[in-house]
């Protein structure tokens, strides 16, 4: 809330919007000696806030709303990229729509990946699409609970095959309808999913040393207790 108020002061039109005493005073007396700190303060305050999300609405979003109502959760532009957040249940239909819609066809799947958000017990699946006609990218995101599965995008782009296998390998997210969902980079008998946030980077070392050398690894004493340790 406080951030928004500060942000509204910054633009040129702020004066006309709401005549806050401070901002008008600053504008009038920008050069003089004494009020030098006030203009500096919003600037330094603005820095950590950085780029802002801006709502994204255009004919593509309207067409999506018309074809697949209630699927869109959010759409915004951030750092010059368009992001579209959709519901999990019909994500392949959204992707198929984006691939073949007449407004702006995103016919190429650049990337598919995931991010783990353990606080929400969720994974965020990220699709990066590219359009050969307009040379634009759009990032489609959807959230999956840790115990849920997701429809596979291989029915839309066969090239999602290995990308989804890697996500399964690293995060353990199951894709329904995937032709060959098994580990790809790690050995078949690997335990755990390394890119989950609760998979400690030292786990492998600690276990290897214990199994093969019969001693406790020195690692954990330097860096604290590994999360998977019982003691």
């Amino acid at each position: 809330m406080a951030e928004e108020d500060e942000g509204r002061q910054q633009p040129e039109e702020a004066g006309s919007h709401e005549p806050v005493a401070d901002s008008t005073a600053d504008r009038g007396a920008e050069k003089p000696v004494v009020p030098a700190p006030p203009p500096k303060k919003p600037a330094s305050g603005a820095k950590p806030r950085g780029p802002q999300k801006e709502p994204w609405t255009d004919p593509l979003i309207e067409a999506l709303e018309k074809t697949l109502p209630d699927q869109r959760v959010d759409s915004y532009t951030f750092l010059g990229l368009r992001h579209l957040v959709v519901r999990r249940e019909r994500v392949t239909e959204v992707l198929r729509f984006l691939r073949s819609n007449p407004v702006e066809a995103f016919d190429f799947l650049s990337d598919e990946t995931a991010t783990h958000w353990p606080d929400d017990e969720e994974f965020e699946i990220v699709y990066v699409l590219f359009s050969f006609q307009t040379h634009n990218r759009v990032i489609v995101k959807t959230r999956v609970k840790e115990w849920e599965s997701l429809d596979s995008a291989t029915s839309v782009w066969p090239g999602a095959d290995w990308l989804e296998r890697e996500i399964y390998d690293m995060f353990g997210i199951r894709f329904e309808g995937h032709p060959n969902l098994k580990r790809i980079l790690l050995p078949e008998d690997w335990v755990g999913f390394p890119l989950r946030k609760d998979y400690d980077i030292r786990l492998q070392d600690v276990e290897w040393v214990r199994k093969h050398l019969g001693i406790e690894s020195g690692q954990k004493f330097y860096v604290g207790k590994a999360k998977h340790e019982d003691d």
Binding site: R49, F78, V128
Partner: peptide
């Protein structure tokens, strides 16, 4: 280096 919260894709 502390980039602000958010995500980016650059190719």
């Amino acid at each position: 280096i502390k980039p602000p919260q958010g995500d980016v894709y650059h190719a």
